[in-house]
Design a protein around this nucleic acid. Structure first.
Length: 801
DNA sequence: GATTTTACGTA
DNA sequence: CGTACGTAAAATCT
């Protein structure tokens, strides 16, 4: 049965879907089946009443197998079969008859029919002018069915629908009055720069770069959302200006960044390139739209195109990037300026301005650490590399004797063949996220450990584990350095690697306020991420003659935060006593894990064995985040039954934990927004269920500790960056490179900036900081410094939880 | 040659 | 059914 367009005459919004499914075919009305239910739900979340809108499909009949490609001649679905062209004509006439203020295209097919473009992810959320009915305002979003498959598109789709509603008052398509000047002459560009300096106005800046070397090819500036100017410095691979002229341009840009408050999208990159390559220092990065987006939409993509699509009412421009880079760059500058205005408003309205400011303040220390880099000891590095090679070769040879064949142990496929087919061992499976997923066979470390447990007499499993360990270690110790033996990392304040721009982006990033570390695009030397270097490999990072590494780490930080959240009085006292204990030897007495062991095994703390302490540590850690018995069993190497017993004892000894977990769930149910100890808000967008809860349990402690350290680190940097060098940030610790003999002086300064009190329900919580000193990152010893801590009102925060 | 999968290091 | 992050090598696709 052909479906009709349904809805009231005079409706302001018209939804256009794809084609009929089974239900639609039966009743002749669009969106009556499963996808229809989803659509109704989405509409109501966007405050749209389904009865007040028009709904139709592009194709009026049901394709065999529900495949849309049936309507097209080609696989890419770009040529409609002649017999279905009437459907398109019908759609056109329907729109012209009803004259809705806005049409909403649902999915690729509708977007193609109405606008001639195929990739919904690139065009969704923008205000478009329909090509099928020129002058008709159009917005595209996902097909409801897609939301059922890809949950991460759920929230953007609701935002799109809300935008459609906002734009349904009038049929007017916003006119683009922007003046985007591109490829201006050097002199004209310099004139603009001088004018901007004279006005002292906010300026948004954006650079395009060329690899390798990260040379600036195009530079754009905008003093408002309506005007932008860009200059091309490198065309292809050739400079466009003479040396003298280009120098004049850089001088002019330098004056702008010296005198004007700057606005950027990911300023850490642009400012880093300008500083490192062009000697241009950005004095006042006033507003970074990446940071703002991270605070406002912590689970959303943060590229400029996406932010624009949810914050602005503009036509899409990102797909033009390859046609005219200079024009596109100017467009980016203008868009960044406007996004900054809108997000500033939103940050203030949602009471997150303070959080925004302290995240902004983290940019400079993060950037400086990136550009300074760390020196590698090449001798130690090559020794360790040789050792890795020796051990892996040795394992390889011994394994060859045992198994009688030579395979690549790094190959999951070959290893699975060897273990589960040739040797006939019981296949091991990877843990699934949900029971609906198919079980996946695996030959990873965990699998081998399990096999080892059941075949204690066979030495091959130890050899395999050894091989894997040293093979992995090799990648951390054999690193490429620059000509001065330095390596670098990019510390990313918003904790995110950028999503691929090919539309096939993987999981979204949660980013709980911790920094991430990744390979620097500006200085691509070293293993990239410096936050996952194994202990042994840290030996290659040695301090120069006369210097040592000094680290300050927050003691048991997450455990402290959890203890206060759940209200565990014994633990609170334990942490407090440790804080007030001047004797470093006696401090060791206050050991959470020994305490846990003593409860679990009902004995005095002094009688707790090493093994019992380990069990206590594992249990506390795992159960804070609601881990299950399988994980405990794997971690402890015990049976599932034993793990279950241990967990039961643990939960009985700590009933507050379960209550806290329930409270988090209740909090989620309200608004899905959780707030940490520093006021950082996070809206959780996952489907309702266990993975959501687990993620939420870890949010408050993890992000609170992250913010706690980063605030201290930033304060420390602002005071002392001219006197001392900051080297690493490891989530709950940071490292300095200090002159021998000044360790204690700097330890005290770190303590002053990092140790502060948060009052939780009027109770003071203080996380202690301990210090370590060593000639290399890998060889350090405790460096006890007794600092009497006075709770200082000025440094404190009050929170209710 | 480009993309996806598998594995594994840290807090 | 800890979570979060980034990278390398193998496997697979085109």
């Amino acid at each position: 049965m052909r479906v009709k367009t349904v809805g009231p005459i005079g409706a302001k919004i018209m939804f256009v879907g794809e084609a009929s499914g089974e239900h639609e075919d039966n009743c002749g009305r669009p969106f009556e089946g499963f996808a229809g239910k989803t659509l109704t739900g989405l509409m109501s979340q966007a405050n749209i009443n389904r009865n007040e809108v028009l709904i139709t499909n592009v194709f009026k009949t049901r394709p065999p197998g529900n495949r849309v490609s049936w309507f097209f001649l080609d696989k890419e679905c770009t040529m409609v079969k002649p017999e279905f062209r009437d459907d398109i004509e019908q759609l056109k006439q329907d729109i012209q008859f009803h004259k809705p203020n806005i049409v909403v295209a649902l999915g690729n097919t509708a977007l193609y029919a109405l606008y001639g473009e195929k990739i919904i992810s690139k065009f969704r959320g923008y205000i478009l002018n329909s090509t099928l009915v020129p002058g008709q305002k159009l917005i595209a979003t996902y097909h409801p069915q897609n939301i059922n498959w890809e949950w991460k598109n759920h929230f953007p789709m609701i935002l799109d629908l809300k935008k459609a509603l906002r734009n349904s008052d009038t049929p007017d398509i916003p006119v683009d009055n922007r003046i985007l000047k591109y490829d201006v002459s050097a002199d004209e560009f310099i004139n603009y720069c001088e004018k901007f300096v004279e006005d002292g106005c906010d300026i948004s800046l954006d650079v395009e770069t060329l690899q390798p070397g990260t040379h600036v090819t195009i530079l754009g500036l905008a003093p408002s959302p309506d005007f932008a100017v860009s200059i091309t410095l490198i065309d292809g691979r050739m400079p466009t200006l003479s040396y003298t002229k280009e120098k004049q341009v850089w001088n002019a840009v330098g004056q702008v960044t010296k005198n004007c408050p700057m606005i950027m999208q990911n300023g850490s990159y642009d400012a880093g390139v300008l500083l490192h390559n062009n000697g241009v220092y950005v004095r006042d990065l006033k507003f970074d739209t990446l940071i703002a987006a991270h605070i406002c939409f912590p689970e959303m993509p943060r590229d400029l195109g996406f932010i624009a699509s949810i914050v602005l009412d503009v036509p899409p421009w990102k797909h033009l990037a390859n046609q005219n880079k200079a024009y596109y760059n100017a467009g980016d500058c203008a868009a960044t300026f406007e996004i900054a205005r809108r997000l500033e408003k939103q940050l203030k309205q949602t009471d997150q301005w303070e959080q925004f400011l302290f995240e902004m303040a983290e940019i400079e220390p993060a950037l400086m650490m990136q550009i300074q880099g760390v020196k590698i000891n090449k001798e130690v590095a090559s020794e360790l590399t040789a050792e890795c090679d020796r051990i892996t070769q040795d394992c390889d040879e011994k394994l060859q004797v045992i198994t009688g064949r030579k395979i690549n142990y790094n190959s999951p496929k070959q290893l699975q063949q060897l273990l589960y087919i040739d040797m006939g061992l019981p296949p091991q499976f990877k843990k699934r996220k949900s029971v609906n997923e198919p079980r996946k066979i695996s030959a990873d470390k965990k699998a081998i450990k399990r096999l080892k447990r059941d075949h204690k007499d066979n030495p091959m499993f130890d050899l395999l584990l050894n091989y894997k360990q040293y093979n992995k270690l090799r990648q951390f110790v054999s690193v490429e350095t620059d000509e001065n033996d330095y390596v670098y990392t990019s510390y990313n304040v918003t904790g995110k690697k950028f999503d691929a721009d090919n539309g096939t982006d993987d999981d979204w990033r949660k980013s709980f306020g911790r920094w991430s570390s990744s390979q620097s695009v500006i200085l691509p030397y070293g293993s990239g991420n410096l936050q996952n270097i194994p202990e042994v490999a840290r030996k290659i990072y040695t301090a120069p003659e006369g210097y040592v590494f000094l680290s300050g780490d927050l003691v048991q930080a997450e455990a402290v935060v959890v203890a206060y959240y759940i209200g565990d009085n014994t633990l609170k006292k334990l942490f407090r006593d440790r804080l007030n204990e001047p004797d470093p030897e006696k401090k060791k007495k206050y050991d959470v894990h020994k305490y846990t062991g003593s409860i679990m095994f009902r004995k005095q703390q002094d009688d707790v064995s090493k093994e019992e302490r380990r069990i206590g540590k594992t249990l506390r850690h795992a159960s804070n985040y609601a881990a299950g018995p399988t994980v405990i069993a794997d971690e402890l190497g015990c049976s599932l039954l034993e793990a279950k017993k241990l967990l039961l004892i643990y939960y009985n000894s700590c009933p507050q934990l379960g209550l806290w977990h329930s409270r988090i769930q209740a909090e989620l149910r309200q608004t899905r927004v959780l707030t940490n100890l520093y006021g950082r808000k996070h809206r959780f967008l996952d489907r309702w269920g266990d993975p959501l809860f687990r993620s939420a349990y870890s949010y408050k402690p993890q992000s609170s500790v992250g913010d706690h350290l980063n605030i201290g680190l930033t304060q420390f940097y602002n005071k002392y960056c001219h006197e001392v060098r900051m080297i690493f940030q490891l989530h709950d610790a940071f490292y300095l490179l200090v002159k021998e003999g000044t360790e204690e002086y700097w330890a005290r300064k770190m303590y002053e900036e990092c140790v502060r009190t948060i009052y939780i329900n009027d109770e003071p919580m203080t996380i202690e900081m301990d210090f370590k000193v060593g000639p290399s990152w890998g060889e350090s010893e405790d460096f006890p410094v007794w600092i009497e801590y006075e709770e200082d009102e000025r440094k404190s925060r009050y929170v209710r939880v």
